[in-house]
Amino acid sequence: MHDPADLTTPTPPPATAAPVLLRAAGLACGYGAGAVLTGVELTLRAGDRVAVLGPNGGGKTTLFRTLLGELEPVSGTLERQARCAVVPQTERSRLDFPVSALDVALMGAVSRLPWWRRPGKADRRLARAALGQVGLAEHADRTFGDLSGGQRQRVLVARALVQDAPIVLLDEPFTGLDAVSADRLEQLLLQLADEGRGLLIATHDVEQARRWGTVLCLNKRQIAYGHADVLTRSVLEATYGGEIVDIDCAVHGHHDVVLPAHHHEH
């Protein structure tokens, strides 16, 4: 585990000269005419791990879809210097789908190929390598639906690796994982960041967010963006609009723990 103290990525402005992957200014996102999320100002650099905090319906998914290019910005500017990959929530994928872990990882190769080309030998090697990188080399030929939740999440990360996108968006990747799986995934994310990728990770865990260094708080508008120090009580209240419960216990240290207002996913 990393000590939060290790990670002092100062943002913004950054002291490091890591290349900018993504920059949004005055960005408003939404469907059709109406904006669901406004005032997004953010700069993502290589090596950043940004925790995206916010209640359900706060605009996380809308932001992700806009960053992916599925939605046009309603207003403002969005400069993407690099391609985006997404790691969706694993329960959205059909678990009865008759594919192996390798098949899923191989789906990442699609983005590099014209529509009529099938992935070739090199792509398969790449997919196997990616599965190796997420620690699932020996599970490559197992049926996707038979893997554990954490393993499935890592397969989807491997898919993003095959996509070889410098920007990876992760949609609540820790949802439903046990402690061991969560630890493995966390290390994997650190590794990805160290390789120079920029990660945006949607989460509800403020504790985690602090560890990752940079946070983006959304609730219909951007509440805060910057070093984890911005996570003050007032920012958290503005983000979640709900009550904040202090849990003073040895394990968590002295951090605020948020119980999001309308959170009934698990």
Binding site: V86, R94, F97, M107, G108, Q163
Partner: peptide, 13 residues
Amino acid sequence: VGFDARTAPSLGA
């Protein structure tokens, strides 16, 4: 597309 139609576009499909 069959696996997850919603993320398919982000995969380049």
